[in-house]
C-alpha cells in the first residue's frame, strides 16, 4: 500500500495562506448576509456547513427573496458543479490510507483553493495531510463570516452600505486576471454578464428569480465557451505543464 509522505503539519502549513484569504472574503459575505436580513449567527452556520463563496452568496439571495427549495437545490447544483470535477480529479491522487470514512469527511473540504493546493503536491496525498489542509480554511471561513456578520450589525449604516460591494469586488478580482490571460474565460464571462443584464433589465425576463437567472446565464455562457474554446486534452495539458 502506497502512503503519502505529507504530515498533518504539512497540511496545516499549506492551508494557512488559504485560511487568511478566506478570512477576508467571508468577512464580506458576513456583511452582505446581515445586510439582507440574516442574523450573524445564521450567516456563520451557513459558512460552517457550506464552505463555498459563490454558492452561499446565491443561496442567501434566494433566502432573502423567499425562493423555493427547488430553486435553492438547482442553484447550488449548477454553481458548485465544478466541485464534481475537482472531486473526480482529486480521487485519483489519494494514497492507500484513504478509506471510505476518510473520503466522506475530506470531500466536504473540497474548494477551489484546497483542490488547487492538494493537486499541486508532487506526491499523492493522505487523509492526515488533507485534514491539516482543510482545518485552517474552515476556521478562517467561519470566523471571517462571524466577524463580518457582527460588524454588519454594529457598524453605522453608511459604512455597511459601502461594504456591501466587498464580496462582488472579490469576484471581480478572481475573474479579471484569469480573463486577461485566457480568451475562453474572457468570452465566457462576457457572455454571462451580457445575459445577466438582459435577465435583470428586460421586463419579460426580469420576472425570472435571481437564482434561476444565474443558472440560465451560467449554463449558456459556459456551454458557449466550451464549444468556442475547448480545453486541451489531458495528455496535452500534462505536456504543457
Amino acid at each position: 500500500m502506497q502512503l503519502s509522505p505529507y504530515s498533518f503539519r504539512d497540511g496545516l502549513r499549506d492551508g494557512l495562506p488559504i485560511a487568511l484569504g478566506y478570512l477576508s472574503v467571508s468577512f464580506g459575505f458576513g456583511i452582505s448576509s446581515v445586510g439582507q436580513g440574516l442574523s450573524w449567527r445564521s450567516a456563520t452556520v451557513i459558512s460552517l456547513v457550506n464552505l463555498t463563496s459563490a454558492g452561499q452568496v446565491a443561496g442567501v439571495a434566494i433566502i432573502a427573496a423567499m425562493g423555493s427549495l427547488g430553486e435553492m437545490a438547482l442553484a447550488q447544483l449548477v454553481i458548485n458543479i465544478r466541485y464534481l470535477l475537482m472531486s473526480i480529479s482529486l480521487a485519483q491522487r489519494l494514497d492507500g490510507g484513504f478509506t471510505l470514512p476518510h473520503r466522506f469527511f475530506v470531500s466536504f473540504g473540497i474548494t477551489d483553493e484546497i483542490f488547487a493546493v492538494a493537486s499541486s503536491k508532487p506526491e499523492i496525498v493522505g487523509p492526515k495531510y488533507m485534514y491539516g489542509l482543510i482545518l485552517g480554511p474552515v476556521i478562517g471561513w467561519t470566523l471571517g463570516t462571524l466577524l463580518g456578520g457582527v460588524a454588519g450589525e454594529i457598524l453605522p449604516a453608511a459604512v455597511n452600505a459601502a461594504m456591501g460591494i466587498a464580496i462582488y469586488a472579490m469576484f471581480v478580482a478572481i475573474v479579471i486576471p484569469q480573463a486577461r490571460s485566457d480568451r475562453g474565460v474572457l468570452v465566457c464571462a462576457a457572455i454571462a454578464v451580457a445575459l445577466s443584464c438582459l435577465m435583470r433589465y428586460v421586463p419579460a425576463l426580469s420576472r425570472v428569480s435571481g437564482g434561476f437567472a444565474v443558472i440560465i446565464c451560467a449554463v449558456l455562457a459556459a456551454s458557449a465557451a466550451a464549444v468556442l474554446f475547448p480545453v486541451a486534452d489531458e495528455a496535452e495539458q500534462e505536456a504543457e505543464a
Binding site: A54, V57, A58, V78, I79, I81, R82, L84, L85, D112, I165, Y168, A169, F171, V172, I174, V175, Q178, A179, G184, V185, C188, A189, A190, I191, A192, V193, L195, S196, C197, R200, Y201, A213, V214, C217, A218, V219, A221, A222, S223, A225, A226, V227, F229, P230, V231
Partner: peptide, 22 residues
Amino acid sequence: FLRSFLRYVPYAVLGAMTIPAI
C-alpha cells in the same frame, strides 16, 4: 465538452452574479 464546460462554469457563475448585482 464536459471538461471544458466544467472549467468555464466558475467564471460564468461569477460573471452573472457580479454584474449587474454589484
